[in-house]
Amino acid sequence: MENAISKQNTSAKRKKVIKSTITYIILSAIAVLILLPFFWMLSTALKTNADIFEWPPVLFPKSPHWENFANAWKALPFNKYLLNTIFVVVLGMTGEIISETIVAYGFARFNFPGKNIIFFILLATMMLPFHVTLIPTFIIWKKLGLVGTFDPLVLRSWTAWGPFYVFLLRQFFMGIPTELDDAAEIDGASPMQTFFHIILPQIKPALLAVCVFAFKGYWNDFLGPLVYLTDMDYYTMNMGMYFFMGGVSEAPKWNYLMAMSSIVALPTILLFFFAQKYFVEGVTFTGLKD
């Protein structure tokens, strides 16, 4: 009897081991599929022009040419482009995070006539194709004489530009019990004090999530700079990349392009590793709650 039970146990155990082994094999196979392109990007970046077109392709370059990174960087004034990008990212991010926190707080904690309709409209703007408003917006900036400056890229940030982020922050604000506000009020705290000392510390994860998303948004923006920046001195990294790619008829220098791609990808990858928790939290929070 006992024997039979232990036999059953071992067969169940064996089944479990086989099952988890299969899972590992599938998981690893997909991981390789994901990582191989990354690896290929780095590997190409370290090759000479002649090595690149070797057939069959060489995964590990015989002698890595690290100087490709420096040479690619120096091929265009990328120092300047990086500085421009940082300027746009910092101003845009700051404006967004401040204005979105305020707007989200208004939606989450106060009741006023028409609130639900307005919030619905805010959510609906998420579905609006950016290109529909692009031309009139361009005309506005042109009439203001600001096309060619960074203004069209950064000033809008103050108007809580990202409906997605407002939504995310509102969800977090709603999760804080109002009893906390009341208690603070009884203790004689002003609404401002309540907001800064009681509420804000509680939504830190959401604020960090928005920071991470906004950074990624401004860093990745291409259409904005493409439409609004006319002077090469004002170009951002992505615009630099667009010109670095060369004309339609030119053959791209793949080692340099992959080197630059790795450099452009580095900040968002680093940010992801350090702030993975907030990335994932932000994504799941908005994806699930209604």
């Binding site: 994901i34 860093w219 990745n220 291409f222 667009y242 791609s261 452009v264 968002t268 990858i269 990335f279």
Partner: peptide, 19 residues
Amino acid sequence: IYYLPAVLPEVAVALLWRW
């Protein structure tokens, strides 16, 4: 690892795949 492609900038993704 599975989340990595999502953090890569579109510009890098496009150039990488073109290659």
